[in-house]
Amino acid sequence: MKRTIPLIITSVTALVLILSQATMLGRKLEIPKILDRYYLLAQAGAFMLGSIGRTRLHLQNIIRRREGYAYSIVLLVALWGFFILGLFQTSNGRVYQWVFNATLPHLESTTFAVIAFYIASAAYRAFRMRNIDSSILLITGALVILGSVPIGEAMWKALPSIKTWIMNVPNSAVQRGLQICIRVGSFAVALRVLLALERAHVGRGSD
């Protein structure tokens, strides 16, 4: 029962969504839209799920004075302090907006920017001609980069055309082939869950 009923819930929910999206009746009753809305509301209902886990871990760090517990204090103050501020001011509040604009967008875009350094180190490690596969990867990557910048065209006039051909023909074809297989695979995975052949999400023990 503890596993059987949840599995039935999974299959029935999936079937209702599939049939309502594909049929006139389902569309007329707007079932897909209703289900989308209830999904978002149910998801919102569980909004603290992750934060409770985080708080539990960091509180344990502080209580037991584990190594680095000062950082746990920083995290918990930021998390619950900012949350309480947002609760009273909403996300449009003046102070909330000020703190948000001073922190999150900059932290996030800087993390994204760190990738530029990691690309260099990844390329150095990977783009050594160990075998024919990595040689093809290296040569194609180099042709595309050089074909996109003015210095590449200055070195060899044909480079931009070569780059365009690579992007439009082999690259596009490989992406098409991959996408077709990926889609079939994603449908198969979803059908395995719907038919309860795949049950990892409820575990395999007895009820």
């Binding site: 978002l40 509301l41 998801q43 919102a44 909004f47 603290m48 992750g50 934060s51 985080r54 950082y71 746990s72 920083v74 995290l75 918990l76 103050v77 930021a78 998390l79 619950w80 302090g81 900012f82 949350f83 947002g86 609760l87 909403t90 996300s91 449009n92 909330y96 703190v99 948000f100 922190t103 999150l104 932290l107 996030e108 993390t111």
Partner: peptide
């Protein structure tokens, strides 16, 4: 740690404000 704290709080505040 600041980033994780602020981001977690912001997602909770958004859930409350938007839903």
């Amino acid at each position: 740690h600041l980033m994780v704290g602020f981001a977690a709080a912001h997602s909770m505040v958004r859930a409350i404000d938007n839903y």
